[in-house]
Amino acid sequence: MSELVITDLHATVGTKEILKGVSLTVRSGEVHAVMGPNGSGKSTLSHVITGKPGYTVTGGSVTLDGVSLLELPAWERAKAGLFLAMQYPTEVPGVSLEAMLKSSAVAAGRDFAAVRARIAEEAEAIGFDPALIQRPLNVDLSGGEKKRNETVQLGVLNPKIAILDEIDSGLDVDAMRAVTRRVEAATNGEDQLGVLAITHYKRLFEELEPDHVHVFAAGIIQASGGAELADELERTGYGDYVDLVEVDDTPEAFHNPFGETTFADSLNLHEG
């Protein structure tokens, strides 16, 4: 049983505070959806947790099974069992998927022959062209191929907790189904993957049913609930939360006059 615990996380880019006190716990086998409008800081959350350069953590903590992640370099967070499927997977000229996973396997003390076999299996399972395993990472790949590539890696690396940042963006229906089914399978059975799925749209949940849905806007979780919250958002949009987003640029004194907790409580959806 693993547990990713995010507590009162604050982070800035330059002088601008993007995360303003995020608290969230993801356990093995659970699927958490974080939904919110563009520009709300959803991707920042995924980047700060996984250690992407360019962000400054100004408060709070993130632990995985009690180990504090924020002091660790990105690769040690990955080694500890964290995985990030990127919204826009980076093109890496000259480095193949296989070369990268080999280096990762060496660092983790895994046998590469077994890893190589896993790559082939995962590629097959998700319809990822095996020829691409030897080609430079994400270079000249279609949107669907890039997300399949991310999912192959998820399968091979077998993390405890996976953060999926808009994994549904740029996917056609078939790719979407293949990717979400693979993730869904990982949350069950032996693997008991815990998932934090960041998304804009509900369509991700056709195959990957969330246990918890969180509305994220203006740098904090505004509301939390079950799958029905996603349905409600689909009907009403983020309109109720957009004012809060717009408040974002106003002076601190005017920020969120209701207070974060009060607002969530008023919807009676606040987690815990």
Partner: peptide
Amino acid sequence: EDQRFYLESRGVP
């Protein structure tokens, strides 16, 4: 930096 992060985020030191 983004390329390095991509590799690191998959456990490459």
